[in-house]
């Protein structure tokens, strides 16, 4: 089966109705001479209960995009729509798992209190709160460590605490920023399977940013490939691999190899192009057209 290629935002998935829409979002940091054009123009949509992976080279603006989607940063132009409503501040239906999970956990709080943090201001009974915390920690297999401090846990365990905290918040959509980038391969595989299981268990939509092509294909229903910054959507590729996915069996499927190769080629071509672009920029720069 050939991977279906669709333009940015044009893919129609069969998973469910549209949950999130990113419409012509651009983001420029600063202004004048020191301005950084992180995102040029990005549009795509995520359906309810879909698992979408966003891949792009390092520094291309993935974190920036996710922060805009999460309502932490205001896009310079364009809109983020959640169920048709514009996102202007962090919506209650979204939870964000940060790239720097170690710094996103509060070292002065126990695992329990870290997971409790987003629930304190929700109107819930104490029992309900505790139940949510325990259920979330159970889901990531950290029940025995509930009274430990984050810094007493390994990196992979800390990441699971961050995931549990996001799950306890009961979001409709989980935004994850390269969550497994800094753990070893074995732990990474385990965490990938964990997140697939959690997705089923909690019936959740996931927008997952990564620079790992294998990971993006293994996890998702759809891969969105970004260009080098200033970022645009290069392609949206449906991943029709069967569920449940398996670290060995899935990765041995010819379709997996095919999709993976396809994404690789898109990104490689991208790198060649951005290399040419850079060369062109340098050439014009020497002519004195640019600073």
């Amino acid at each position: 089966m050939a991977p279906r290629l669709a333009g940015g935002g044009g893919a129609v998935s069969t998973v469910g109705r549209r949950l999130l829409e990113i419409r012509h979002v651009s983001k420029t940091y600063g202004s004048g001479d020191s301005a950084t054009h992180a995102i040029a123009d990005v549009s795509f949509a995520v359906d309810d209960r879909e698992f979408v992976c966003v891949v792009g080279p390092s520094g291309c603006g993935k974190t920036t995009l996710l922060k805009c989607v999460g309502g932490l940063l205001a896009p310079t132009n364009g809109d983020i729509l959640l169920r048709g409503t514009r996102v202007t501040s962090p919506p209650e239906e979204m939870a964000l798992v940060f790239q720097e999970y170690g710094r996103s956990l509060m070292p002065w709080s126990t695992v329990r209190n870290n997971v409790l943090l987003p629930l304190r201001h929700k109107k819930l009974t104490r029992q309900k709160r505790n139940a949510l915390v325990e259920e979330a920690l159970e889901a990531v297999g950290l029940t025995p460590f509930i009274d430990r401090y984050p810094w007493q846990l390994s990196g992979g365990m800390q990441q699971r605490v961050a995931i549990a905290r996001a799950l306890a918040y009961q979001p409709a959509i989980l935004l994850m920023d390269e969550p497994f980038a800094s753990v070893d391969a074995q732990t990474r595989g385990d965490l990938e399977d964990l997140i697939l299981r959690v997705r089923e268990e909690f019936a959740i939509t996931i927008l997952f940013v990564t620079h790992d092509i294998d990971e993006s294909v293994y996890l998702s229903d759809r891969v969105i490939v970004l260009t080098h910054g200033p970022t645009e959507v290069k392609a949206s590729i449906d991943v029709d691999l069967p569920f449940p996915r398996d670290q060995i069996a899935t990765k041995e499927l010819p379709d997996f190899a095919h999709l993976r190769g396809h994404v690789y080629r898109l990104i490689n071509r991208e790198q060649v192009e951005s290399g040419e672009e850079l060369a062109a920029t340098l050439k014009t720069a020497t002519k004195g057209d640019r600073p």
Binding site: L72, L96, S104, L117, H121, R165
Partner: peptide, 20 residues
């Protein structure tokens, strides 16, 4: 990052002050 985390979970400014 800790502040952004609290903000992303809808923790208000006052609670951010005494929780983070």
């Amino acid at each position: 990052v800790a502040i952004d985390t609290a903000r992303s979970f809808g923790v208000g400014p006052l609670e951010r002050l005494y929780r983070v």
